[in-house]
């Protein structure tokens, strides 16, 4: 089965460039503005879009993304509304891959089978669920594969060669390499170490390997993109969004533009990278 994610990586490979993947919290700062932002992302240069599902207790996220989730929840965002937003987006864009990223509990409460059916029909292509390691594959990963959704796994600096095969076994779409041991938006990724790690993972899989956590600037994005099939930026976009809000945390006329502008410059950075020969 080919998903929009597989198709997008095949296309980028032909173009000889690395993917630029954006992360923003669904419903941040409010559901309506969030939809406008997401609609603007492909034109600004996003090749793949990750949409965060807000959760009260995001244990792998730093303060910026925690706050984004709380803004979204305060504005009334729910899992159902996130899926409704995806359906709206799909009316005008049937090719940009969409990945939902978040934590398991809202999905578990929605009901796994119902969630997979709803996500698939809304136009979701893949899932990244932070608190579901391979040890818990029977919960969501295996049913998601059966439902035709990619289950994108996180590999980290602590995932050694012995453990990698277990992590990669049921991964599809791409592998998300977490470039630091830490939470989102904390330390900066070291591009040399990341290059080695990506090469190590590539010895175990034919899947594209994308890198995220700790990448904030066009220059950093470019350095990472030299050696990776994709570069994920989240906190820097969330920070740009937050900086555009008014004193009460509400969207302003400049919010969509502010995010799109940062996406554009980061996308330029990624596109400027010369891909290492495979």
């Amino acid at each position: 089965m080919t998903t929009r994610i597989d198709a997008r990586f095949a296309e980028l490979k032909k173009q000889g460039r690395s993917a630029f993947i954006t992360f923003l919290m669904g419903g941040d700062p409010d559901p309506k503005t969030s939809l406008e932002i997401i609609k603007a992302l492909p034109k600004a240069g996003a090749d793949i879009i990750e949409i965060g599902m807000p959760f009260t207790d995001p244990m792998a996220d730093g303060p910026a993304i925690q706050a984004a989730g709380l803004r979204a929840l305060k504005a009334g965002m729910t899992l159902k509304k996130t899926l409704a937003m995806v359906r709206e987006f799909r009316k005008a864009d049937d090719t940009t891959p969409l990945v939902l990223m978040g934590y398991y509990n809202p999905i578990y409460i929605h009901g796994v089978d119902k969630f997979l059916a709803d996500a698939k029909s809304a136009g979701i292509d893949g899932l990244i669920i932070v608190d579901l390691p391979p040890e818990e594959d029977s919960e969501l990963c295996l049913p998601a594969m059966k439902a035709g959704l990619n289950f994108i796994r996180l590999a980290t600096p602590t995932t050694d060669d012995k453990r990698l095969p277990a992590v990669l076994a049921n991964t599809s779409g791409f592998v998300y390499y977490v470039s630091i041991t830490g939470i989102t938006g904390s330390a900066s990724a070291d591009s040399a170490a990341v290059g080695q790690a990506v090469a190590r993972i590539k010895r175990h899989t034919k899947l594209p390997v994308c890198v995220g956590f700790g990448i904030r600037t066009p220059l950093a994005a470019r350095a990472i993109a030299q050696n990776a099939d994709g570069t994920v930026v989240g906190t820097a976009l969330v920070d740009a969004l937050r900086a555009s809000l008014d004193g009460e945390g509400n969207a302003t006329a400049g919010t969509v533009e502010a995010v799109a502008g940062v996406v554009s410059s980061l996308a330029q950075g990624v596109r400027g990278a010369s891909q290492a020969a495979e």
């Binding site: 608190d131 390691p133 391979p134 600096p157 995932t159 977490v178």
Partner: peptide, 10 residues
């Protein structure tokens, strides 16, 4: 169960 981020699993 073990519902944790991959970083912690090893």
């Amino acid at each position: 169960g073990r519902f944790v981020a991959e970083t912690l699993m090893p």
